[in-house]
Structures are given as C-alpha cells and as structure tokens.
Design a protein around this nucleic acid. Sequence first.
DNA 1: CGTAACCTTGACAGACTTCAAGGTACGTGG
DNA 2: CCACGTACCTTGAAGTCTGTCAAGGTTACG
Lengths: 228, 228
Amino acid sequence: MTCSFRELCLPVGLTDEEIEYLGNLINYKFRVRRGEYLSHAGSDFKSLYAVKNGSFKTCVLKVDGRQQVTGFYMTGELLGLDAISPEKHTCDTVALVDSEVCEVPFKKLEEIGQNIPSLMSQLHKIMSREIVQDRGVMMLLGGMRAEERLAAFLLNLSTRLARRGYSPTDFILRATREDIGSYLGLKLETVSRSFSKLQEEGLITVNIKHITLHDVDKLNFRVGNSAD
Amino acid sequence: MTCSFRELCLPVGLTDEEIEYLGNLINYKFRVRRGEYLSHAGSDFKSLYAVKNGSFKTCVLKVDGRQQVTGFYMTGELLGLDAISPEKHTCDTVALVDSEVCEVPFKKLEEIGQNIPSLMSQLHKIMSREIVQDRGVMMLLGGMRAEERLAAFLLNLSTRLARRGYSPTDFILRATREDIGSYLGLKLETVSRSFSKLQEEGLITVNIKHITLHDVDKLNFRVGNSAD
DNA sequence: CGTAACCTTGACAGACTTCAAGGTACGTGG
DNA sequence: CCACGTACCTTGAAGTCTGTCAAGGTTACG
C-alpha cells in the first residue's frame, strides 16, 4: 500500500475499515519510462491508472499519421476515464518523463464502491471534473486567440499544481512545444511566438521548459478578454 | 411514471424490482418552452435532467457578454453531469424547442445505485461517453478546417439520432447557424459557407434547417482528411 | 401582412500556418 | 572532458483560411 489511493483521489474522510477495503483495490504500481506507452488506443479497458508521480499525455493517431494530443496528466490525477463506456481505450497514453502509476481495476472499484458510498461519490466527482476541464478546453479552442489559449493553458496547469501542493507560479513544462500546440490547436511555431509575446509583456518568464508566472491577474484578464 | 428512466439511460436489463426502485427516483417531469432556461450557471446542483423530448443547448456567458455554446442535447440524453463535482451548474441550459425533461435527484440516484450495481455502472458509462464526446469536439476544434468541423458535427448528430431510433440521414437542425458556429469555433457566416460548400460537392442537401446526408462515407473521409 | 429573426453571399482584412533558416540544450561515445 | 548528433526551440517572410463588415433575401410568427 505504498501507493495511497486515499491521497490520490479521496480527499473525503474514510474510516480505517474503508481504507482496509482499498488495500484490495490497488493491484500494484509500476514504472513507465519516458516515451513508453501506458496504454494503446483500441486495447481493452480493465483499469484506471492513478499517476503516483511523473507526467503523461494522451493522444490519438490521425489517419494522416500525425498525432493529436487530447490531455496532460500530472501527479495525483486519474487516467482512463474515457475508456469506461466503450470498454476500449480511446487514446494512447504516453509518459512524458519517467513515471510511476497505480493500477486500479475498474470492476473492483465499482464492487467496493457498493459498500463505500463516499468512494463512489468521489469517483463521480472526478469524472465530473474531467468533463468540466474538457469543457474549459473546448471554450479555449472555440473562442480564443493563440496568446489567450496559451495563457489559459498555463493558468490551468497552475491551478492543478496548486491543488497538489506544488508552486503555482514556477514550474517545469514536461511537454514539447509541439505537444502543447497540438493540445491547443496551434502550430509549434505559434506556441513559441506566443510564449515570446507573453514574456515581452512581462507576464511570464520563459526559459525553454522552465516557466515563471509573474502576474496571474493579468493572465486571467488576457483569457477573459477573448474578442470572441 | 410516464417518463421511463429505463428507456432513457438504462439499456441494460433490469428486474421488475429494480424498475420499482426507479419509480422513487424520478421526481416529476415538466415542460420547458423554447428559449426558456432549465438551469443557470452558478445555481446549486441538485438533479440531473433526462431529456424526454425536445432539444437543448448548454452555454456560458463570457465576460464580453456574448455566449459560447458548449453542447447540444437531444431526446434521451442526460443533462447536468458537469455540475456534479462543483455542485453548481457550470453553464446555462436553454431549450431550443418546446421540450419535456425528467428530473433525477442526484443524491437519490447515488443512494439507489448502491443497491443496483448495473444502475451505477450505467451512470459511469454515460459520464464516460460524455467525456469521449467532448474529446471528439476537442479533436475537431484543435485540428480541423471549417468544412471538416461541420462534417464531423453532422456525423455526430447522425450517430446520436441513430442510437435513438431516428433517421441518421434526414433530420431537422434545432440550432441556429450562430449556435452551431459558437459550438464549432466558427462564425455564423463560415458555417453558412461550409453548408453551401458541402452541398455543392453533393455530400448533403441543405434546406435551411432541414439536412439530408447523401454520402456518409465521403463525409467521414472529409473528417479524417484533416490537413493537420 | 408586416416585422423580426435568421440565412446567404461578396469583398477585404487579419490571424495563424507554412516554409525556411539558424540557434540552443542534452546525451552518447570517443 | 570534449565532440558531435539529435531533438527541440526561436524567428522571419509569404500564403491561406477564417473573421469582419456589408447588403440583400428568406422564413416564421403574431
């Protein structure tokens, strides 16, 4: 039980008995090296994966052979929710750095959830949060300019890092410009230019992958100010 | 119990006893007239709503006062999943035509789900499907040109209509060009032009809101063939 | 029948992409 | 320890797609 499911996705209070239950839930944890695949699109769905540490991207391969990034997942987040309905993984999951994940067999989770209402509720909240997050990206893709998209992306990372107890204003990007661009619906050159522009304006400092946010309020203002 | 929750979101087999349980689940159904709001962004979340008949859009008001459409919901689909985690509605829900919905108190649903595992599983699948659908929109917004976006949108509607037993190739759009554009990240003029273009190519027939799909394969090809 | 909301089409402008070149960081092997 | 190669990042110039602005037509409903 080195991998605390409680810490990962159960901020709600649990009794010791319930924690005991969860002992049966986690199969094991294992490592995924940078660039390795945790799961492939089309493969059978059996388990969710909680990111113990590290960072992942999810992406799909398009007919022309290029890939589109659909999400980034960091320490403490849950992978695989999209696969529940089709019972197949709908995307590839790739480690951006050497990482560790905990496997959570979904059937077991549902079984055990029958006896721990708060566990079920928590799962529902996590899924709902995923929906809310995706909606945010849709808003971003649907109505924002390049620099606004990047600002929104940085603020989103910032929020998620803060939730996990990391610095919300000083962090290392694990994704390349190309991955970020793919996620934001931009070309890598546009991402690069947008980084430069935000830096020129003094809102952030960019040192390749090391990002510092100087003025969260102004970044938020940039996001809100989408011309339409 | 004129509003069959079973038909709405429970294609899995249920015993009569379970159906009996569900009788307690549905509070009541009611009508929402065209243009009326079913729920407002920021209001407290208590219930999901199953669309008995009719059509809805969800949208958020941006700081500049304009709205962005985040989703369309038709007969048989479930509204409000995004509100579970924040326990507040994250968007406005507006009827596109006179509609009827069934209210499903979420706490009750979770309680009853404790005794009917298949009901819980079904909820998870519905939420997962919502995530998959949103991912599809993200793909669309992130990597497709205007005509490809529109083709993908029409195919998505087609699939959902087919699932509910309606014609997948001949249907009435309930949304305006502006709403569609907002959802697809395009201006209404671009939507209009794209409709015209797809019609010129013989893939569809457009009669204002009445759409006929002539060549689903070619439409799919258009979608897959996104330049990047 | 008239008004308001909605749809279509054209011309021009702006934002992002594409194409191209060069620079920087990192890891491997000599 | 340094050299070299690869992967990644930055910046410029030209091209394309979509947005913007404008005008006119159609539909629906009171």
